[in-house]
Simulated assay, not measured.
Amino acid sequence: MHFLISFALVISQAAYHREKIDSPTEFTKKGDWEIAQWTSQRTVGFAATELIPSWTADTPPGTWIKVEARIPGSGWYTMARWSYDGPRTTVKGQKDASGRVAVDVLKAARPFTSYRLRVRLARPPGSAVRPRVRTLGAVASAPGRTPAAKGGAAWGKELQVPRKSQLAHADHGGRTWCSPTSTAMVLAYWGKGPGAGELAGYPPGDPDPAVDHAAEHTFDKAYGGAGNWAFNTAYAGRFGLDAYVTRLRSLAEVERFIVRGVPVVTSLAFAKRELGYGSEGHLMVVTGFTADGDVIANDPAVRTVRAVYPRAAFEKAWQRSSTGTAYIIRPFPANR
């Protein structure tokens, strides 16, 4: 059972106070900063065991945000220190009697029915610039077996998502870039992404500078890679899109997005006997379904990119390995 709260908010006009940061783990640099903060309290309608925050924000050069989470009995866990231009990092070694942080997931030691999020916005003293948080939310979940729903709403429908390959970047680390490559595909589908100026610094002959840019701007310094779920949706949000991490209970729920023209990035691990090759952790874009309900995906690890996978095997692997983790990246609703 899963529960998502996504706050549609703008945090930019909060009052700032000066604060001395003695530890470089706070906002990378020691010294004085001007800090503003906002805190939420939310109730979950069931006993959850995991929490994944995500956000979209604008961080002018020199500014930062820090996203924190708290569950009953715990202190504040740092989920991210983030800025678009970087560096971006999670914090290793966060563990106490209440839970632990595994890169982008807060794993509770015991079930919880409420949580708090806090975001701290930082800028240099005397600066007039204001970092802005546009959305902040979290998906709380209780991993467990969910009966597969039959679906059918999107059978025979395929979205024309531009195809991008992580293998084209294998000579400079791209074999592990499934997440930013998937994010870049969805950005291209919506006609969004870095402009010519941001891509100008990549060398001539680069097979796809947009993928390199996505990998660079989703890199998590502590994790040592570009696979941080929330960093990928935050990157997509930088281009004006509504982007968040969630967990879906079945492919039937994915179909609801496909029907509305929204591709879904899925995170899963699988064996060769299930999908034809094996991976301990991979992301791909579900773009539609065959007439029989099998999954059509833009898989960045497949040379042709477009691939079709058996529905039952895909769904089982996705739910088993990541509890149905997905990125939703789409334009904001017109009535927001």
Rank of each mutant, 00 (worst) to 15 (best):
R132E: 06
K150I: 10
V133H: 09
K150S: 01
P131S: 07
A142H: 14
R130G: 06
P125W: 12
A138H: 00
K150N: 13
G151V: 11
A153N: 07
G137Q: 00
G144W: 05
G151R: 13
R145E: 08
V133S: 02
K150H: 10
A140S: 15
G137D: 05
G152E: 13
R130L: 04
A149F: 09
T135S: 01
V129H: 10
R145P: 07
A128Q: 08
A154I: 08
G152A: 12
K150T: 07
A149Y: 08
K150V: 12
V133L: 05
A154W: 03
G152T: 14
R145S: 13
V139H: 03
P147G: 13
T146C: 15
A154E: 15
V129W: 05
R130H: 13
S127L: 07
V129I: 11
V133E: 09
A142E: 05
A142I: 02
T135M: 02
K150M: 11
A140I: 15
V133P: 12
R134D: 03
A142M: 08
S141G: 06
G152Q: 14
A149G: 12
P147N: 10
P131Q: 08
P125S: 11
A128I: 07
A142N: 07
T135E: 02
P125V: 10
R134Y: 03
A149M: 07
A148F: 13
A149R: 15
V129N: 14
A149I: 14
A138R: 00
G152D: 05
L136W: 01
T146H: 08
G144F: 12
A138G: 00
A128M: 09
